[in-house]
Design a protein around this nucleic acid. Structure first.
Lengths: 255, 255
DNA sequence: TCAAAATTATCGATAAATGATAAAAATAGA
DNA sequence: TCTATTTTTATCATTTATCGATAATTTTGA
């Protein structure tokens, strides 16, 4: 049926936030695969640490993902720059804020690093590691704006199957983001919250990303907005420079 | 050569903290596998997000691991309890401290959640997601102490290939930990640092873990130690209760 | 623009995956 | 503790995928 790594991916995909535990019988039903085969695949996944068995013949995700998350944090240029520059950015915002570094992933936009100011009580949807729709929100739009217009259009048509009306409206919006250097939306993702985002890109690395600030709408006024825009522009620049520099150094080392 | 998921694991394993980028040629040399085959496997890994390609025909780990780390944080009973109980534990320690929740993983001990008090400047080896040796340090020994003596002995002989002298000494130490309920070591892992750990277990879930406090040796005195022991005992209890309760509830829901 | 390098496609021989069934092990209940 | 039930592993013939050499194509860098 499925082949290659898809056999394993199908299994792992079942274990999402809503269904964290599965029995072999349940997987067999969900995947239309004999439990004979599943037992073999599951054993392999358990052996490498991607799954682990628990009581009552249930399985859940295994600790390997924590180990590999560390490897990403230590090595990925975008995630590393988040660890360095997000906290200073957060500290420049004079109101309670969540700052987010997000990137294109699988036709969606996913936060790969974040920072929350101590006073920020509100919940935000762009949580670390959570894929989000690409058509809504300043964070996502700023990511889209990093693609060349034609590439973005083809991407939206093929991967997102957006309607031509949506694409036309969005195209104008993206042009504005490219011109002004930032994107701002209010209540598009979370009610009562405002997102302000700046594009982050590295064509050499093929990185399409954005850095953004999320605050409560009631905190926002003209002065605050100017401070946020200035801080964002600086952070985006720093992150781009950091990625360029570190990867150039690494490439040099590897030679 | 390799079969099943091992084909993919061999590739991913190359991307550790020290060698975050690989070329196909490099992988071909390291794994003794034709680049024809590797290109196919790599493409599959890229498609699911476990790898991604970057400039100059290099590959690095992909963002899937961030997505699955989130799933673990949301669902794994041990990691979740860390998110809840580690901060209060840290706040009970009157000196700069790092608190660590660690578990058995692949014959080693790995931190799966941690918390650092604002004043703690020192570096600790038990970083989130980093496998550590099982024979040294209070954190590891407390984990070992959660296994029944005979199981621990067989485990040490087979998986760790420890010498019989090591096992004998360790056996006494583990007996003491089981009796007193905690483990303390000084400088065994990081020079100048002291680790104090309490066992955490859940036989139903097959969880062997520990919760520990790491402080500078110079911070430690009798009074501080008593406070730490008391806080640790409470935290360990809370974590065990939480895991028992949440998994019982989930099992009930699933029926 | 062009040469070199990287990546993908092709394909026959080989090796592995599948799933039905049986055997074994683990678990829960009396 | 013993037993019945469920879960997990092992076996095996058939089907299917994988391997790697080679060729074709695409991308990259000068």
């Amino acid at each position: 049926m499925a082949q290659g790594i898809r056999r394993y991916e199908r299994i792992l995909d079942l274990f999402d936030a809503h269904e964290p535990e599965w029995t072999v019988q349940g997987m067999s039903d969900a995947l239309n695969t004999s439990s004979s085969t599943l037992y073999r695949l599951i054993r392999e996944l358990v052996d490498v640490g991607m799954l682990e068995s628990t009581v009552e013949s249930r399985y859940r995700l295994g600790p390997l993902f924590i180990e590999y998350y560390r490897r990403i944090r230590l090595n990925d240029p975008l995630v590393r720059s988040g660890g360095i520059f997000l906290k200073p950015l957060m500290q420049q915002i004079p109101v309670p804020a969540v700052v987010v570094l997000a990137r294109l992933y699988n036709g969606q936009v996913m936060c790969v690093a974040d920072e929350r100011s101590p006073g920020a009580q509100f919940q935000t949807s762009y949580e670390l590691g959570r894929p989000m729709p690409i058509l809504r929100g300043a964070t996502s739009k700023a990511v889209l704006s990093t693609m060349p217009p034609k590439v973005a259009q083809r991407f939206l048509e093929k991967k997102i199957t957006a309607t031509s009306a949506e694409i036309a409206v969005l195209g104008m919006e993206l042009a504005t983001i490219r011109r002004t250097g930032f994107s701002e939306t209010s209540g598009e993702v979370d009610q009562g919250l405002v997102g302000i985002a700046a594009p982050v890109r590295n064509t050499r690395l093929g990185i399409n990303a954005s850095v953004s600030v999320v605050i409560e709408r009631s905190s926002l006024d003209k002065e605050i907005r100017l401070m946020i825009l200035s801080a964002l522009a600086g952070a985006a620049k720093m992150i781009e420079n950091f990625m360029r520099d570190t990867t150039e150094n690494e490439a040099a080392e590897a030679n």
